[in-house]
Amino acid sequence: MIIGYARVSSTGQDHSSQTERLQAAGAEKVFQEKQSGLDRERPELARALEFAREGDVLIITKLDRLARSAAHLHEIVETLDKKGVGFKVLDDATLDTTTRTGKLVFGILASIAEFETALRKERQMEGIARAKAEGRTGGRPKTVDEDRIRAMKEEGLTVPQIVKETGISRAAVYRALGS
């Protein structure tokens, strides 16, 4: 069975042209949703992946209708592959895991995605090391002047008075006094 997946990003858009193209390409069942590609939770995509059985083929019109990144695409296609389900992109004939060439192209794409992930992680680790060397430990900068709060407490102010004067929460005052 050929299964189609159509997605548009916002409620103002219409996926009828995608649906028509998918049906023209032989899709017997089309899952469609209006959801941002950045959303991790896409219920219709999940239903399409669950619905697919061994020997089926999932088709989409464009690659950006399915995945947010090469790594995300690889994750989805790996899920399909484990189930024995093929994958095709109508606008990119080279992305067709039902052919040897398509599998090769997808393997190259997956390798590039893995390489990009490794580079991103390496740059992140370099940034963390540089920040540590500069004495920055990460996290949000403190907005509470703990020395001032302790000084106010030593002057005899109560916690409710400190809260009122500084405008910070009671919990933040107690944290400052405890540290």
Rank of each mutant, 00 (worst) to 15 (best):
Q161S: 14
K62I: 01
A171Q: 13
L109Q: 01
A172Y: 01
E146I: 04
K132Y: 11
E28I: 12
E20Q: 12
T94P: 00
A27W: 01
D147A: 15
K121C: 04
I3K: 08
D147E: 15
T101E: 05
S179T: 12
G156M: 11
E33W: 07
L22G: 00
L58N: 02
L63N: 05
E126M: 12
H74D: 14
E20R: 09
R42L: 15
A133W: 00
K29V: 15
P160H: 08
S16D: 09
I59Y: 00
G127V: 06
R42D: 13
K153F: 05
E78F: 12
E44L: 10
Q161T: 13
K29H: 15
E165V: 14
A131T: 04
G12N: 14
I60T: 10
Q35A: 07
A118S: 12
A46T: 15
L109T: 03
L45P: 07
A171F: 04
M125A: 15
A27K: 02
F51V: 08
A6E: 01
K82L: 15
T11P: 10
E146K: 04
R7H: 10
V77N: 06
G138T: 06
R65F: 02
A151H: 09
D96F: 02
E146L: 00
E155T: 09
A71L: 15
L177K: 07
K62E: 14
G4S: 07
A176H: 00
L49E: 09
L22Q: 02
E44G: 12
A67C: 10
A176E: 00
E122Y: 14
G138W: 03
E155V: 06
L157R: 04
T99C: 01
T158F: 08
P43N: 14
P160F: 02
D81N: 12
V163H: 03
G178V: 07
L45N: 11
L157P: 05
I76Y: 04
T99K: 03
E146Q: 08
Q161D: 13
R123P: 06
H72F: 09
I3M: 03
I112K: 11
G156F: 11
P43T: 13
T137Y: 10
K121V: 10
T61N: 02
L73T: 04
I112M: 13
T61M: 01
A176M: 02
D39M: 08
S69V: 10
L49R: 11
L45G: 07
R120P: 09
I2K: 12
L63E: 02
A176P: 02
I168P: 02
I108W: 10
D56P: 14
V30E: 05
A27E: 05
G139C: 13
V30C: 11
K29S: 12
I108G: 07
A27I: 00
G167D: 01
E78V: 10
R65C: 06
V57H: 05
G55Y: 08
V144W: 00
A176F: 02
T19A: 09
I76E: 08
L90P: 02
G26E: 08
A133D: 04
E116Y: 08
R150H: 03
A71V: 08
A24L: 02
